[in-house]
């Protein structure tokens, strides 16, 4: 998620309200938390991608219920 989020950064998340394209979210997949940016939402699914497109090009498709929280701030 470079350049905005670097290894070691901490983020505060909250988990209510709608998720929109452009939001950064923390979600859970296979017992692991991931942080990605929302591309779009469609039919109960959320499509996510990385900011660091040079190294991470995959599109993630997750169910909305997998979202742990929307990133509110970085500190």
């Amino acid at each position: 998620m470079l350049p905005v989020y670097k290894p070691g950064d901490r983020v505060l998340t909250f988990n209510w309200g709608p998720v929109n394209a452009g939001d950064v979210v923390v979600f859970r997949e296979n017992k692991t938390n991931y942080i990605k940016r929302v591309d779009s939402t469609r039919g109960g699914f959320v499509y996510l991608s990385s900011d660091n497109r040079g190294k991470a090009t995959k599109i993630w498709k997750i169910a909305k219920r997998q979202i742990v929280g929307l990133v509110l701030l970085k500190y």
Binding site: N33, Y34, D39, Y47, A56, I59
Partner: peptide, 21 residues
């Protein structure tokens, strides 16, 4: 809690959705 930006192994998640967008 820790949140990762990438998975460590090829995760097999591909989707032509963004290409269409």
């Amino acid at each position: 809690k820790v949140a990762f930006a990438h998975c460590d192994v090829p995760c097999g998640i591909y989707d032509p959705h963004e290409a269409q967008m």
